[in-house]
């Protein structure tokens, strides 16, 4: 029922692969997906920015009741990361067990498989964060 829609996945690869986002020229608000109007100040001018790939973990949890498409990975960790420029980003946290995580610990971005519907279907990649190596 819930499948990767290829054009939708492909359209946003700049953000998902490289954390490329938009920053409002007027108020500085960061938008992950191409905005036409700033949600905060309603300005219509944006600059593309490359978000920092490091930050600290503000909070984390473990998804134990996964949505369709994520069953094979469950349980997996989801966290809120505050990037070094202050942007908060929701992300899977990888390469660790929950008990190794601590609030405030340094994390860095990496690229991982986020989902694949079947062995014969497309593989979707996305940023995830992991404890800094």
């Amino acid at each position: 029922m819930f499948r990767i829609k290829i054009p939708r996945y492909w359209r946003h690869k700049d953000f998902r692969y490289r954390l490329n986002a938009w920053r409002c020229n007027h108020c500085g608000e960061v938008h992950f997906f191409k905005p036409l109007v700033c949600r905060k100040c309603r300005s219509r001018e944006f600059n593309q920015v490359s978000l920092p790939d490091t930050g600290k973990l503000l909070a984390y949890t473990v998804v134990r009741s996964p949505p369709e498409g994520f069953e094979a990975q469950s349980p997996y960790i989801v966290g809120i990361v505050e990037l070094d420029d202050g942007t908060r980003i929701l992300s899977q946290i990888t390469d660790c067990h929950p008990e190794e995580l601590k609030k405030g610990m340094r994390v860095e971005a990496t690229l991982r498989k986020i989902r694949e519907d079947d062995e014969d279907k497309i593989i979707a990649y996305c940023y995830k964060f992991r404890p800094t190596v």
């Binding site: 939708r8 992950f32 997906f33 949505p67 989801v78 929701l90 899977q92 986020i114």
Partner: peptide, 29 residues
């Protein structure tokens, strides 16, 4: 799993839904 995915439709799907963050995981955070 379908219900969990369907409930995620109230989040920004390209962001929250795409990475497998559920309504409950956001509540947990």
């Amino acid at each position: 799993e379908e219900v969990a995915a369907a409930m995620t439709s109230s989040e920004r799907q390209e962001y929250t839904g795409f990475i497998g963050a559920t309504f409950y995981s956001i509540n947990a955070l």
